[in-house]
């Protein structure tokens, strides 16, 4: 019986030790924020907001795919647990808007935003942008073979050298896929070539960049911000990163990270806090924190992150089309990539 006693005493000491933290559910007064993007950025944003309002945020952080999956599963199962959703790409928000689960709110600083980022009809608002680009390893890709644009990726010389994030796992990857599909005149020519070149699929976009940095891959397609972060991380460790960015001549794919409030019953105080957080995300402080992590600001008059050219060719995308056809795009992507 000594063993049983020992087991039970361990259990109770653990329960006593951690009952105030590990096992308690979210505090009622807190508002739930679901956010994708770098974890460090989420932590900084939380700390900055809570400086003014106290411990009011309960933050769930994940990649864009798991974020979208969590929101969607919760919606299908009956109720979205989040109060605010921030991250991923506009298609998810368009779909949520159509399902009638978003609360309409126009932040007061909307007039300070660049015109191209004002959309969503008040149901969601773009907070940051990231640019889909070509990333390469400077030590693995010879100078004379460095691609200049998306069309160069059709070449057979990239066989087993390329990587992209899986559009059925990552929602940002789905947005990039949709963008490149539109850029290539609504055709799958690029993705068929990628499939034939036996492209490697990763679960998140940052994995593409990280695999290129460690020379598991030679080049790939990913948003620019992750590249800037890994270059900075290497610099901090006293290493020169082999990562390089190509800003394709046909234009980068601009993907915005929107924010939206979920429509649900809340106390007046919580409702107020939720709106304050949306305002905070668009404030200069919120925008500058995101810029430090490589994201493009949506406000006029603020700086671009270091390493992003001042003038850049941006290919304009039809987000409404992308949202409407996202099922079809995802299904075709899977059909091309998963041949057996």
């Amino acid at each position: 019986m000594k063993f049983v006693k020992l087991v039970f005493s361990i259990i109770f000491s653990f329960i006593l030790l951690f009952s105030n933290s590990s096992l308690e559910a979210a505090v009622e007064e807190q508002i739930n924020l679901y956010i994708s993007g770098p974890k460090e950025m989420a932590k900084l944003l939380e700390a900055e907001f809570e400086k003014e309002y106290g411990d009011v945020l309960n933050v769930y952080h994940s990649g864009s795919g798991p974020l979208r999956q969590k929101v969607w599963t919760e919606m299908l199962a009956g109720s979205i647990q989040a109060d605010i959703v921030w991250g991923a790409e506009p298609m998810m928000y368009q779909a949520l808007k159509e399902k009638g689960v978003l609360l309409r709110y126009r932040p007061p600083m909307i007039q300070d935003l660049k015109k191209e980022y004002i959309y969503g009809d008040g149901y969601f608002t773009a907070v940051n942008a990231r640019y889909g680009v070509i990333v390469y390893n400077k030590e693995r890709v010879l100078t004379d073979e460095i691609p200049t644009g998306w069309a160069d990726l059709l070449d057979r010389r990239w066989h087993q050298r390329l990587g992209i994030a899986d559009a059925s796992q990552s929602s940002t990857a789905l947005a990039i896929t949709s963008g490149l599909y539109q850029l290539f005149d609504y055709s799958w020519i690029l993705y068929r070539a990628l499939g034939e070149n036996e492209v490697m699929l990763t679960k998140q976009n940052i994995d593409v960049v990280s695999k290129i940095e460690t020379a598991e891959l030679d080049l790939g397609i990913a948003p620019h911000d992750g590249v800037l972060r890994l270059i900075n991380k290497a610099k901090k460790r006293g290493i020169e990163s082999p990562l390089g960015i190509i800003w394709p001549v046909e234009g980068i794919i601009s993907i915005q990270r929107p924010i939206a409030i979920i429509k649900k019953e809340r106390s007046l105080e919580a409702d107020n806090l939720v709106k304050k957080f949306v305002d905070f995300s668009l404030s200069e402080t919120g925008q500058n924190i995101a810029t430090r992590f490589g994201f493009i600001t949506v406000r006029n008059g603020l700086k671009l992150p270091e390493g992003v050219p001042q003038t850049i060719e941006v290919s304009s995308l039809d987000w409404k089309y992308a949202s409407k056809h996202q099922e079809e795009i995802r299904a075709t992507f899977k059909e091309i990539m998963f041949t057996d």
Partner: peptide, 14 residues
């Protein structure tokens, strides 16, 4: 999954 091969568990996940 990176090699574009599903098995049933990863199929459920995706």
């Amino acid at each position: 999954l990176p090699a574009r091969k599903y098995i049933l568990t990863t199929y459920i996940y995706t």
